[in-house]
């Protein structure tokens, strides 16, 4: 066997703070900073897929009870708890503001694939869908709402009517939401959800914490920006991207033509 390499994943190029933050979010060995606690029941309410503390609805019997045709692979991969129980597959959908968001759609996809198991996700420009088995989803939601990747002002649960990521912010600095699922409570200084992600009015409003202060917003911003970390100065990243474009063209023309000098 060839001599073993000392391989350490790069994860992402660049030495600036934003590149470093991207590296950290997408490396599951590095923990996400926790900002707030949200009760499990509140998460269930916000998701609006089942009633609080009701049993999970099943789409099929628990795996142990299904007789499936023989397939050794099914015994290798460890199913998630929700899959094992036969839970329905349900979703959460986030919209992230264009203006200094702590995470953005492709950032989510990479984070989901690095940190969660059994995920179905679709990246859009303003929103990102995450589908999982229901109990797995609730668990993931906790991480998604409680940590540094959720700024109650700039990230929002929007199951439907997702429009607004790119709009200017409202007078309280909150991302636009045509269904006004959340409002800024000026007395408590918190962003409060008065509707669930599908826009149904909640019996009890759920506070998700105060908007992050401006310096924190800048620190946690995941996108390069002209007034924080100017994108055009990211030489390493641009080297990767321009090289990748060239190699793809060459590989498409003749895959054998790529060599180590390129």
């Amino acid at each position: 066997m060839a001599e073993k390499s000392e391989y350490v994943p790069n994860v992402y190029p660049g030495k600036d703070e934003i590149s470093e933050r991207r590296r950290r979010l997408w490396d599951k060995n590095r923990s996400l900073l926790k900002y707030r606690n949200i009760a499990e029941d509140d998460i269930t309410e916000l998701l609006s897929h089942r009633s609080v503390r009701s049993a999970y609805v099943s789409v099929h019997p628990p795996l142990e009870e299904i007789i499936e045709p023989y397939d050794p692979i099914k015994h290798i991969v460890v199913p998630t708890a929700g899959a094992r129980a036969g839970d329905r597959i349900r979703f959460i959908q986030f919209s992230d503001s264009f203006h200094k968001p702590p995470i953005a759609p492709f950032g989510r996809a990479r984070l989901y694939l690095a940190r969660f198991r059994g995920v179905d996700t679709v990246v859009y420009s303003g929103r990102e869908l995450l589908e999982m088995r229901e109990r797995d989803l609730e668990k993931a939601t906790k991480t998604l709402l409680e940590t540094e990747i959720f700024n109650p002002a700039l990230d929002a649960l929007k199951g439907i009517t997702v429009h607004g990521h790119s709009l200017r912010l409202d007078e309280d600095g909150l991302m636009f939401d045509a269904r006004r699922r959340y409002i800024y409570d000026r007395e408590t200084g918190q962003v409060v959800y008065i509707k669930d992600q599908m826009g149904n009015v909640l019996d009890n409003p759920i506070p998700l914490g105060p908007p992050m202060p401006e310096d924190e917003v800048k620190k946690l911003c995941i996108t390069y920006s002209w007034d924080t970390q100017p994108y055009k100065a990211r030489t390493e990243l641009f080297e990767v991207m321009t090289r990748a474009a060239k190699l793809r063209v060459m590989g498409g023309f003749n895959p054998e033509s790529i060599n180590e000098k390129m």
Binding site: V77, V78, A83, I89, G118, V119, T121, M132, D136
Partner: peptide, 11 residues
Amino acid sequence: GAMRAGQAASA
């Protein structure tokens, strides 16, 4: 395999 769902392939 973890999700035991075909829809997860696309991601």
